[in-house]
Nucleic acid binder design. Sequence first.
DNA 1: GTGCATATGCTCAGGATGAGCATAGAAGGG
DNA 2: CCCTTCTATGCTCATCCTGAGCATATGCAC
Lengths: 322, 322
Amino acid sequence: MAAGAPRVDLGLNAVIVAVTEEVPRILTIRRTPPSGGPAEDALPFGPLEPELDRTLDRGLRRWVTEQTGLPLGYVEQLYTFGDGNRDPAESHGGPRLVSVAYLALVREASVKGEASWRDWYDYFPWEDWRRGRPRALDRDIGDIAPALEAWIAGAPEARRERADIAFGLGGAHWDPDRVLERYELLYEALLLPEARRDRRERGEGAVPEDGLPSGRPMTLDHRRILATALGRLRGKIRYRPVVFELLPATFTLLQLQTVVEALTGTPLHKQNFRRLVEHGGLVEGTGKDVRTGGRPAELFRFRRSVLRERPAPGVGRGALKA
Amino acid sequence: MAAGAPRVDLGLNAVIVAVTEEVPRILTIRRTPPSGGPAEDALPFGPLEPELDRTLDRGLRRWVTEQTGLPLGYVEQLYTFGDGNRDPAESHGGPRLVSVAYLALVREASVKGEASWRDWYDYFPWEDWRRGRPRALDRDIGDIAPALEAWIAGAPEARRERADIAFGLGGAHWDPDRVLERYELLYEALLLPEARRDRRERGEGAVPEDGLPSGRPMTLDHRRILATALGRLRGKIRYRPVVFELLPATFTLLQLQTVVEALTGTPLHKQNFRRLVEHGGLVEGTGKDVRTGGRPAELFRFRRSVLRERPAPGVGRGALKA
DNA sequence: GTGCATATGCTCAGGATGAGCATAGAAGGG
DNA sequence: CCCTTCTATGCTCATCCTGAGCATATGCAC
């Protein structure tokens, strides 16, 4: 179908998510950039082998299991990244690197090999509002940091609107789903190490360090991929019961709530959350209790038949606190 | 990043949507399959030229404008299709054909070249519930057609659940967003011409025609791509104000409602729709009136500042009728 | 003016949502 | 044993959203 055969390399990237206690984790590897230099965090990746892999996600499952010993359950395609300047190697005559990124949800498990689980809020400290407004915000980009204001100031009104919507400034509300918009805005404003690195590598001149903590960087555009995943997942739990992919077969309502809070990064009202999921038919009690430190909690399970009853069953806008 | 260079061809597909009066249209071309045979409907497609196109969507815009003279406004990446058996040519030793599909929304315009606009419900007659339950459903797959029931009958319970959810059987509700699930189910049940064609081409034996009208077929897996687009668009108008990409700068509320109905395929309650969009801050009156055949209607425009005020502004679940 | 067609305004019942008060059941310290 | 502490669970209330219907306004054709 493609007329001339373009010089394209196709890879697959995996954002593999698990939640342990109240911390959402992603699987990362360490990678030394081809240009040398210190090792960087990276998302697991692998090639598509057309001879082996009948479909893209089979390819993904194949090498993820090979590399990490982890069998994947829920897998969903996220986005395909094909920008010219995602890999500096291309500017030296390399092929265009196109990556299809996938989101995978797993229950916590140990992983072999050099992969390791990391708190995803290490990469996005400004996304965690569970204990109130994150400190990173005020140090990085809030009213205090002049960088973002400066970036807005000179520019046309559209830029201010973007910043307001993305970061909930000027009376706008903080929308947990806009993870990618926030990441891209910080990148454009040169507040992220990756942005400064890419600029240097393109030879567009260096930008001074600002010394502000702007989260842990990753190789290439992997943090952008991660932001895409986080935003998508936050959106999805609202209308599809994907949370249960991260939980054991039975769980207490507090466990469920904790996982949802970990994902959305916002605190929830306990009683209303209970009403939402129980009265909303999303879960059903098993009758069994479990010790908790206080009054014993009932164990619940996902109620599959909710899929037939409600059009978009998920942990919707409801039960929000503050 | 990809280890060995896989034999992969990368193409771009465009689902270009416009709405004229009350009919949603997509831009199609005619294509003679490489194997010969009669021409088939196809989505516009083109290659990615890594030397020319800094990003994927720039590549898309480039050749769409070249081929059709149509400048694209709103463009959104949909999904990447890379199954082994999407192109029969691969089984004869061709490279794996991977296509990144995009959704584009345009205001109606004339198109040069051999492209032409077609009602998208030609391809999915069962998706149009604006004038009640579509007849195609009852002739194709409803209680009347034994095919789907037969497909369900022998199989494990999971299959019945899928069918119930996708088609709103057995007490479940019809969810307009599940376009792709319905398409894939019909495909698996061999009720679509494409399914029978692909099966023949894979040499797995022929399936008799059922003679039932199951919508206009397309080449390769293009109807699947189209189903993805339709489902995505239906979902998106609920939480993002994308409808306005399809409308002129000012419009009457009936025009707006008609476009929304065309997309979702469901009728809306007029007064409630008005309340939803006006009282919800999505549009604002301009003060100007326009002739309509009855009482003159006021012209409205999209109210940009709603983006700051509400977290997910769109034509949400509200205003549904029946 | 009459009838028709579309636009616009208003009300009402039921359900969802955000918030808080109150009680239940277990563990542990004095 | 009583009291405190901890978590779970139940219930109420005000507010807003949603689905539905009734009523009125304003143009046009005849």
